[in-house]
Every structure is written in structure tokens, then in C-alpha cells.
Design a protein around this nucleic acid. Sequence first.
DNA 1: TAGGTCACG
DNA 2: ACGTACGTGACCTAG
Length: 569
Amino acid sequence: MTAKLAGFSLCYQKGISYYIPLITSESSNSENLFEEAPAYISKNKAIFLLEKLFFNPDVIVIMHNGKFDYEVLISNGLKENPTCTIYDTMIASWLLHPDRSSFSLEKLTEAKLFIETISFDSIVPKGKNFTDVPLETAVKYGSEDADFTWQLWQIFEEELKKNNLFSLFTDLEMPILPILAQMEMTGIHIEKSELAEYSKDLSSQIEKLQSEIYDLVGHEFNIASPKQLQEVLFIERGLETGKKTKTGYSTDTAVLEELAEKDPVPAKILEFRKLSKLLSTYVDALPSLTDKNGRIHTNFIQTGTATGRLSSRDPNLQNIPVRDENGRKIRKAFDAEKNKLLISADYSQIELVILAHLSKDKNLCNAFLSGNDVHKATAAMIFGVSPEEVQPEMRRTAKTINFGVIYGMSAFRLARQLGISRTMAKSFIDSYFATYSGVQDFINSTIEQAEKEGFVETINGRRRYIKAINSANKSEKAAAERIAINTPIQGSAADIVKKAMIKVHAELSEKFPEAKLLLQVHDELIVECPENQAEEVAKIMKTSMESVTQLSVPLKVSVEIGKRWGEFH
DNA sequence: TAGGTCACG
DNA sequence: ACGTACGTGACCTAG
């Protein structure tokens, strides 16, 4: 949002491209400069000319990592909501191979065009800017950037069509791109003073815990160092070791919870870690990232996952705490500006709904159709009781199994998760698959498809190749099978949420243009809008999201309206 | 930079 | 006999 425009490059046929540097001095805004210095044009002139491209519906603009360029152009005066079509070669390559390690123009040019590129670092010395390099060098670097993007598109267009990914590209991923840009640039407001207060509170709690730990242990040490902590727990205090890590014995939550029954230190460590995490990752970090209006801007990464989900970075706004009361205080610091409200709309159990749809399992579909608590319905089915007879413990078990199925569960993990024996876990699993035999069939056929074709697909044809699916190594093969099961479920959910974003954005732009999408958290959309529009905006969001796809089980969306995120009424 | 840990869906 | 649930990103330590 603060990047300046040095110049831009264009290409419309292979091997011929142009770099156009801009006059950098802010004072030189004369219209005549174009004639006086034909090799340069002013920034205003450049934006004016580029707008002709971006607002021509007959034009297709091909870019690499277009969201970035688009945002820079907007920060420098380009109007929003272009009418051209944007095609992004970075996204195209991601759709073709979503678990590639890099989608940089440099790496792709090397891999697909077999050309060595001029690297940015090789022409711009450390600490210098692009505008410091000689024009001749800038021309070389800038113009090949456009040329390679053009050439990559020629290849990707064919490949997308060949693999039936073209409509996913044009109808889903490309329309999402400018929406993400708008969300990022809008940002979300945080109430700094609340976090500042919470910071003091947390710091003193942490300090107190720290001295209590030192007292119990008899000396000071770095609690955050797993190495030193192992020494203290397993040698000095002689506690039993559990799981191993690559470098020693684990001190993670599960292990410490176990140890807490025999020793007072582990519980304090757990509390210390919990509060330190909140303080360093959120409470102290977020306020320093606000702009002059107190808003925070994340970067949504469209190529961030192998399943089709988005990821969020610098800062990650998709992992803001919510699960316990301490953490929720942080979420509540995210608020709407004056005279506005936040609306959160989230899909209920979207991944299980998709599992029901993909497997067409009669009992799982009925579990959804019969009521609104699918875990309870599952418990009733696998324990052979009526829904009214389901005890909380039974529901908890069913819920864990439901998640387990989505992740490709093992009896071992289920047993550990539920704190029961492996035999017992195995019998729950058997009973689950006896009830939901369609789910078992879905799992088997998905793995078979992966073995035969080498990839799995989502409802919309999004693809993920699974190289290890035919591995001779047993645990590698098992891990590949879990990916094969999970990807169509998680990925289809990602497809649906992206479709919903497009629909919600279109509806709101037309009916309530002041309402803005701010965040997407995998199954949840957050919108900010004027107070007096909130009820209607919420209705539009719910309706749009529920009607975006027709599955064999209806999608349900719950909406909440409030001044702060995580605190609704 | 890798490893451990932990925040989220 | 073997390893142990899917997908992320940030912070801290240690080398």
C-alpha cells in the first residue's frame, strides 16, 4: 500500500516488450512532459493510459502476481473495479501444480521456458531501490518480465484447457483476485487501547508465573527453550519422558498435560506458554501494524495451499484466537469503525456436508436432514440410541470421529484423542463405518482413483497430484492416502467459499456499496457496513452463501452482527 | 535456517 | 513391524 511506481512494462507478442520508466519527481506533473521527454512519462499520464486498458471489457490483461501490481496501481491512483479480464500466470501455475514450492516468475521461467532470468537482487544492490539502477538495466529487467509472463501464459492456457481447469481459472480464481485486493486494502480496525491494557495484564501474569516456576525448580532458566525445559523436567525433576522429537523428548501440550498429574511445574509451564503466545503473537504484535486509521492489512495468498484454500500472512488474520476466553479478548479488539457494524457469516459443518454430498451416504445425509446437530445424530446412529438418549460423552466421541474421517483417521490417533484404548477406538471406527458404509465406499474409491490417475479432484475439478500414493513405503503410502481423502473435502469447501465471496461481493456492490468484505477465515466471511444496513446485509450474505451451490444436503449459514468480532448479539 | 510449539479452520 | 489425522503461519531458541 506504500509502494511507489517506478515504471511498467508491456508485451503483446513473444520476444518484443517495452519498459516505460516514470518521472519520479512529484513536482513535475506537466502535461507537456510527454513531448519534452519522450522516453519518460509522468505517473498521472501512465495511470490515465493504463486505465484505458483496465477499463476496456474487450481487453485481457495478463500479469504475474497480478494482485500486487493491481494494488500498487490503485495506491497510485488507478480506479477500482476494472472491467477488463485479468489473467494471472502465477495462479495458473498454482492450479496446474498446487504443491509446487515456488510460483515466482524467475523459477517458472526457468522451469517452463528454460531461460535464465535477470534476478532482481543481481541488479539492485542491497539497500538500494529499483529507481537507482541505470535505465538500460531497468529496461532489460522490466521488459523481460513482461515477455516471460506473456510466454508463460501461452503454455498455461493450453495446459489449463487440457486439464479441464480453465473454467475454474476464469470463473473462480480470477474473479476472486480483485476482491482479495479490495479486502486487503480496506483492512480491519483494531482498538489499540484495549490491547495495550491487555498487554500490561498479560505481562504481569507471565512474570508471576515465571517466578513461581523458578521457585519450584530452584533456579532460573529459559522456559521458552525446549532444550533447557527438557533438562529441568526429565533430568532435574526426573519426570517420565513421553514422545520423542528429532532432537530429544517432546514437551508439547499433550505431554505436559500428562505430567501435570504428578508434578506442579508442567501446569505452570502450560499456562506460561499459553499467555506468552497470546502476548508475543497478537497483543504486542498487532498494534504496531496499524495504518494511520488504526486498520490492519493482511496479505491473502491465493497460492498458499495445496488444497485451494487461501492463506493469510503478515499478519495472519486467519488464526486470531477464539477458543478460550483469554484469547477471545484479542478477537474482540477487532471492531467496526464509528457508526458501522461487523457481520460474520459462517457455514455450519461445511466439510461434513461435503462429505455427505460426495459419499451420498444415506445415513450421513439423513443425519443432516433430521436436525441441526450432526454430531448428536452421528452419536445416536453409532451407539444405537435415540437422539434424546445421547449423552455429552457420546456426542464428544462422535464429533471426534467425524473430524477423524475428514482427516483420514487411524485407530491410534483416535484412541489418543479420546483417551481410550486402541481396541475401543477400533470398535468405534468399525461401528461408524457399519453405519456410514457409503463413507467407507467413498474413501476406498477416492484412494483407488488416486492410485490410478495420480491425482484427486474437488467438486469443481480443482486438482492435486499425489506422488506418494503408490509408494512402497508403508507410512508414506498411508500419509498419501490421508491427503487423498482430505483434499477433495477441504478443497471443495474452499471452492464453495470462494464462489460465495464472488456472489456476496457482487450482491453487496450492487445493493449496499458501503458494505465491504474484510476477511475470509476458511468457512467464515466478515463484512463491515453502516449500522442501519446491517440487518439487510446479513440477510443477503446468508442467502447468497446458502444458495451458491446445490448439494445433496443443504448448506446452512449462521450470521452474527456486532460492534466487535467475536462478540455478537 | 531448522525444529519445536501453538494459534486458527 | 511401523507410525500414528488434514490444511496453514508466527514466534522463539539454537546452531
